[in-house]
Design a protein around this nucleic acid. Structure first.
Lengths: 201, 201
DNA sequence: CTAATAAATAATCAACAAAATATTCATTAT
DNA sequence: ATAATGAATATTTTGTTGATTATTTATTAG
């Protein structure tokens, strides 16, 4: 592989931007390398100086997409007006809403992310790791404020991610015969239960 | 549609039985109506006196399969040696193990259930309703014993089902790069968390 | 009437050719 | 050297045709 100059980074970015637009509008499969190249005013062959192959372009866009989603969650972490329980609820509510509207609006992008997630497990694993670390932050803060009493924060964050898969995993979010409102109610109920537990006090 | 006599019920059962064997061994798609008919010593056309179409035979078998799974859960409800938390854990552990081994051993059956679940949401909804009612029973018992303090049992059962989808939903159970042992650990952790909650006591 | 069938039709699948597309390579330009 | 291209090759998709299979209909048997 080649050593790419500084300017190459900008060209890579242009390719990603151009491909993003086409992937959203027409889908990954219906977009050709030739079309992407023409949008960048270059030959198709030249694309291969910047990306291994078409799939790698898809990976970049999927990553960008998941990164945006993470930003939505991160924004909740910065809010000052919430206690730990409220923050946990708001966190998953935002993630749920973002996931839902993304998949609803951009069906093609949903398919791309699903496809890439299938072929590149490391992509989704990285995304989950981000979500886990956000949850861990919320738990730590809950411990500090005396609201929570979580011994093993890392493990508990992983457990919470397991229990909330309905709210961030696109195939479940988009499951048939179920509206966003129902999911929002379920999200509130799940977090409430996780916070309070079943045990008599 | 015809009014079927008593003997017809037995013929239907025979059709289901022979189709079950072939679907397991060769899959839904690779089994022909002619083969099913020959196994029953009848013509293919005659099958249509008992089922609308091939898919309806598949539905019956998927139902049987989910029913078996429910029986595994029901068996846990009858055990006398468990408190509510242990029962909840054992319930999902059995469901998880059954789902996993079924999908692992009988790939064809897994595909059939997945396909039917896609086309006939009412099938999976019925299954979930069964699971929910089992969970509700466990919660009620936990309330009786003073172990739990659950106000709205029905809603809480639904919430628990949401949070445990990883352990009964075949596509999640069978997700790549994850062993049964990991899932069993996660199951224990999720139930423990649901029982105890995050809140400081 | 019910039970069943063979024959007819409709829908789906499989194989294969043709076309489109992805990717590589040899070459040119800077 | 890096950057880019057109042409060559490899892979994938698409379209078409024949064969298989699902389903319906007309008919027969009891």
């Amino acid at each position: 592989m080649l050593f790419l100059m500084q300017v190459a980074v900008e060209i890579k970015q242009q390719i990603i931007d151009v491909a993003d637009i086409r992937f959203r509008r027409y889908g990954f499969g219906k977009t050709t390398m030739w079309e992407i190249a023409k949008d960048c005013r270059m030959s198709a062959a030249n694309l291969y100086r910047y990306f291994e192959n078409k799939e790698e372009i898809g990976v970049e866009i999927a990553l960008k997409c998941l990164h945006n989603k993470e930003e939505v969650g991160r924004a909740v972490l910065r809010r000052k007006d919430l206690n730990a329980e409220q923050r946990l609820k708001a966190f998953f509510l935002e993630i749920l809403r973002y996931t839902h509207q993304l998949c609803e609006k951009d069906l093609h992008l949903f398919e791309l992310v699903a496809f890439i997630s299938e072929e590149h497990p490391e992509v989704v694993q990285g995304h989950q790791a981000s979500l886990r670390s956000f949850i861990a932050e919320i738990l730590a803060e809950g411990n500090r404020s005396g609201e929570f009493e979580v011994i093993d924060i890392v493990t508990t964050a992983a457990t919470i991610l397991f229990a909330t898969v309905h709210f961030y995993y696109p195939p479940l979010v988009m499951m048939k015969n179920r509206g966003l409102a129902e999911l929002e109610d379920a999200e509130d109920a799940v977090i409430t239960l996780l916070v309070q537990g079943l045990t008599k006090r």
